[in-house]
Nucleic acid binder design. Structure first.
Length: 567
RNA sequence: UGCCGGAUGGUGUAACGGUAGCACAGCAGACUCUGGAUCUGUUUGUCUAGGUUCAAAUCCUAGUCCGGCAGCCA
């Protein structure tokens, strides 16, 4: 039996298992999740989080949370807090190991000085434009900077003055001295320190020079004793530099960088930059807008941590650039919610149903099962009366073949109630649409108790008593994007904003059974055949409850007939 | 066209020289107090061409296609 934090077998596990057998890192496994605090975590990050924490758990090691905060211009403490909350919500714990690259600034600086003294780094005076010209292109080797052979003492002096704030941003950089002719661009004397005057969210203005990713990341890994530094595929070409720096400084710890393919999801924008644009331009309510693929957004949309972890387990880990069908994510949510969510009856587009032979003023409490898949959730009473509301789509005056629900002359069961037979329909004179359906009930067919309690009918409908029903305002979540494939974004003129789905997050008012509120906020409900309803307990904004139809039950009738009428 | 990486059904993933399996999606059926859920069955696959081998998705060679790399971002 596997738990949902286990990951399926994959190549990184094979590597770790082999390292363990060879006693490569003294039998230790230490991983880390290294976000840059410049945005919120999204479903793609969940893949990395589940893998890194999952690996640590499985191999009895540990996993650090380290903020890669080496670019003060883009980072903010808001993100530091949100990221931690989201990881905790997902169900992972870094224990004592909350780290920041900024904690290592002094150490990193010392390493840089050492590199200079070793003659393996130099301060370069080239401008950004000159730097680019000297670097060359992939197919052509670069040329050495005129400052490449600057004596270490001179570089050291300049570097110290860079740190002291004597120079303007961009005036000097520190570069590793590697190979300007390398076919790998990242080895053509990469910049490892730059001057950047921007307040850092943790160190303030203590520093005006900041290490680049390539310099800070490998050394931070080494400081923390990371054994397996797992990152995404685009860092593959950085690996020689990762190893070069650690080798040059002869660090006692030399973690192994392993790359895997990042998650791509159909219909889903995964670019942090573009998500940020949606937030900045006010196209969504914020990073936690229920339409966003962020963990905060998914949470508000009713996604459960277990569903997301299970999804991450199922998608696997490879080096293949794949496009995962979002249907798998939705399946994982249904799978979890079907097991746990309480059932409730509600109608989205009400149609009055009058039972002509049911006494006016009479109310019966019908016994409804809270969750057929979990008897422990018990039963609840649901008031039944003469005038009910049913789903508008559950009635058709002229039903085509294949439609089993209510129509003139037809009998259906009202779930947990009685069987009724339709005797007629009253139409709205203005629109010609059905305004009220009339029927008669069979008193012997009462659910659970009547003599004809097992009476066979073609269909069963959900309903609420009109007198007792309470309105419940929510936002109907639909997919934010309408494109079938990220590739189609290009077809939309390259502007991802043009593929936004205007129908997403529209207001709906469901008429629901009176007892619904008693279950308390934060609970999930499954509205029979309609979808899932969820209220974020921490969210009191108007219209905050979300009705999630994407992870919905499919309407078999509408699907087969090709009629998209179901509401 | 330089370097690095990748290619298994519609999608994702497993098999690490020995029966190509699993999941999602799809389709069909059973059951059901909703046609959902559940259960059962099922269609579809090793990029191409050579080679090694008793045996190749797996190893070798050549090709094809896809992705990444030219921030003082991460």
């Amino acid at each position: 039996m596997t738990t949902d934090t286990d990951t399926a077998s994959h190549f990184i596990k094979d590597i770790i298992a082999a390292d363990l057998r060879a006693n490569k890192h003294g039998g230790q496994v230490v991983t880390r999740f290294p976000p840059e605090p410049n945005g919120y975590l999204h479903i793609g990050h969940a893949k990395s989080i589940c893998m890194n924490f999952g690996l640590a758990e499985e191999f009895r090691g540990r996993c650090h949370l380290r903020f890669d905060d080496t670019n003060p211009a883009t980072e903010d403490v808001e993100y530091v807090d949100a990221i931690q909350a989201d990881i905790r919500w997902l169900g992972f714990d870094w224990g004592e190991h909350l780290h920041f690259a900024s904690d290592y600034y002094q150490h990193l600086y010392d390493c840089a000085e050492r590199l200079i003294q070793l003659g393996r780094a130099y301060v370069c005076t080239l401008t950004a434009e000159e730097f680019k010209a000297y670097r060359g292109v992939p197919t052509q080797p670069g040329r050495p900077s005129p400052w490449r052979d600057r004596p270490p003492a001179e570089s050291l002096d300049l570097f110290r003055r860079m740190k002291a704030g004597e120079f303007a941003d961009g005036q000097y950089v520190l570069r590793a001295k590697i190979d300007m002719a390398s076919p790998n661009l990242h080895l053509r004397d990469p910049v490892i320190y730059r001057i950047r005057r921007a307040p850092h969210h943790r160190t303030g203005d203590t520093w005006c020079i900041y290490p680049m990713y390539d310099f800070a990341h490998c050394l931070s890994d080494a400081v923390e004793g990371i054994t397996h530094s797992i990152c995404t595929l685009e860092f593959e070409v950085h690996r020689p530099l990762y190893d070069w720096i650690l080798d040059a400084l002869a660090t006692p710890c030399h973690p192994q960088q392993i790359e895997f393919a990042r998650l791509n999801l159909s219909y889903t924008l995964m670019s942090k930059r573009k998500l940020q644009l949606l937030v900045q331009e006010g196209l969504v309510q914020g990073w936690d807008d229920p339409r966003m693929p962020t963990l905060a957004g998914l949470r508000r949309r009713g996604y459960t941590p277990a569903a997301i972890r299970e999804f991450c387990r199922r998608i696997g880990v490879t080096k293949f650039n794949s496009l995962t069908d979002v249907a798998l994510l939705e399946h994982c949510l249904r799978d979890d919610l079907n097991r746990r969510a309480a059932r409730a009856m509600a109608v989205l587009r009400p149609l009055r149903l009058v039972i002509e032979n049911y006494p006016a003023g009479r109310v019966e409490n019908m016994e409804a099962v809270n969750n057929p898949e979990d008897p422990a959730q018990g039963v609840r009473p649901v008031p039944f009366s003469r005038e009910l509301l049913i789903e508008r789509d559950d009635f058709m005056e002229n039903p085509p073949s294949g439609f089993y629900r209510l129509a003139p002359g037809r009998a259906v069961r009202l779930r947990y109630g009685y069987c009724v037979e339709c005797t007629g329909v009253v139409k709205d004179p203005a629109t010609g649409e059905p305004a009220e359906v009339h029927c008669v009930y069979d008193p012997d067919s009462r659910s659970g108790a009547g003599a004809k309690r097992n009476k066979k009918v073609k269909a069963t409908l959900h309903w609420v008593s009109q007198l007792h029903a309470r309105p419940l305002e929510a936002r109907l979540y639909d997919r934010l994007f309408t494109v079938p494939d990220p590739a189609d974004e290009a077809a939309a003129g390259g502007d991802f904003r043009r593929v936004l789905n205007p129908a997403s997050l529209q207001k709906v008012t469901a008429m629901c059974e009176p007892g619904l509120a008693q279950a308390g906020p934060g609970a999930h409900y499954q509205f029979e055949r309609l979808g899932y309803f969820f209220t974020d307990p921490a969210d009191s904004r108007p219209g905050a409850p979300v009705f999630n139809r994407t992870a919905t039950l499919r309407d078999g009738w509408a699907r087969e007939s090709g009629k998209a009428g179901a509401g």
